[in-house]
Design a protein around this nucleic acid. Sequence first.
RNA 1: GGAGAGGUGGCCGAGUGGUCGAAGGCGCUCCCCUGCUAAGGGAGUGUACGCCAAAAGCGUACCGAGGGUUCGAAUCCCUUCCUCUCCGCCA
Length: 425
Amino acid sequence: MHDIKLIRDDAAAFDAALARRGMEPQSPALLKLDVQRREALGRQQEAETERNALSKLVGRAKASGDEAEFNRLRGEVDRLKTVLEESSEQAKHFDEALNQHLAALPNLPEADVPMGKDENDNQEIRRWGEPKALGFKAKDHVDLGEGLGQMDFEAAAAMSGARFVALKGGLARLERALAQFMLDLHTGEHGYMEVSPPYMVRDEAMFGTGQLPKFADDLFRTTDGRWLIPTAEVPLTNLARDAIHDDAALPMRMTAYTPCFRAEAGSAGRDTRGMIRMHQFQKVEMVALVKPEDSAAELDRMTGCAEKVLQLLELPYRVMLLCNGDMGFSAQRTYDLEVWLPSQDAYREISSCSNCGEFQARRMNARFRKEGEKKPAFLHTLNGSGVAVGRAMLAVMENHQNEDGSITIPAVLRPYMGGLERLEA
RNA sequence: GGAGAGGUGGCCGAGUGGUCGAAGGCGCUCCCCUGCUAAGGGAGUGUACGCCAAAAGCGUACCGAGGGUUCGAAUCCCUUCCUCUCCGCCA
């Protein structure tokens, strides 16, 4: 959510930044609404001032028992009513129109975010690890999982439809092991506090993080009007809503292991095979609330925390700086981690770490008070996958597969697997 | 799900139609006093928006949220959210 005052101050800069999102200039329409709103508000407040003054006189007349004066004043206030009603209705109308317009505008990309249309224009920042030469033709995780008898798409589809899977035995445990490992890493080494949040939230929460009002189609809705979270970013970030935080409490780092539910409305036909794109998947998420001056460094730190997961799992990956065209609605800067998938001979997204600046904080009114300063300021929010558990599992399967279809379990996961070193049929 | 009670400023807590942004207390800030500490005295202490180049200042709104009645609402009415108690149900 953008600050109309900043747009007022420098409309050209705002439009220029929006152009980097591929958008037409919005400031003319916004500023027009802003002027209309303020004019109406001025009229309303003037009328209210007058009404308040007169009402006091009415009260006095009544108290002193002056019936004639009482009735005369009453009539006068009565006449104000029309003006009041009209102007306040207009003020409300323009205010809502302005907010609606503002709420639909995405965050502005930082100045050095590369320009581009889609993921092909993202900029590679660095690589870690070498894709292993397997010496045989890599199987994909579906063949591996079904070969183990531990990954059942058919049974899941029968009860739930496409884009669901049932894991059994060793793979079910591997998923749990991955989650445990990631949580232990982030809470133990990276200073994140573990949170177990709600998986269903209200409209306001979805608005706060930016899923609403524009992206309802990507979400599942319950019959009583709540939404299933598409990521723990939503409940974790909303923990800060409607509050003024003590600046000593910042940075606040939180992590959660949750299911994520996505309607995948726009991705029909994409990634239909396997576990890459599911309606329901597990993810360990990181969220950080920081002071504005710390958010840039925090993004690097958070990205590093996600990288650490892949390094310890011995999974080759690369870090991409997303171009403007591939960035999410609320982000001002995003790094994606892409993990190597031998079966696809390609790197695929496994984590996405974003600095949202004060964009979300404004939407949910999450502020902090600086030591010694009177006025509360909006804090900055960041979120990142640390990492997607389902995709991590298939990356482990594919990268650590053996020719016989068994899977070598990375050393770091073995304590979580009862010491097991291999998954075998 | 049924029956009842509530939601007031950082906290506690008064206030059932007028001069209430809201008594009182606690906390906090500043000042005074006091040979340490403690006690005591005084002043101040919300947020948002608008007007203003800005500060000062002025205005408006805010007593969970939204709507209504009224010349005037923290106070009356409706809706809604949340909390608590009892009963029922339940992992």
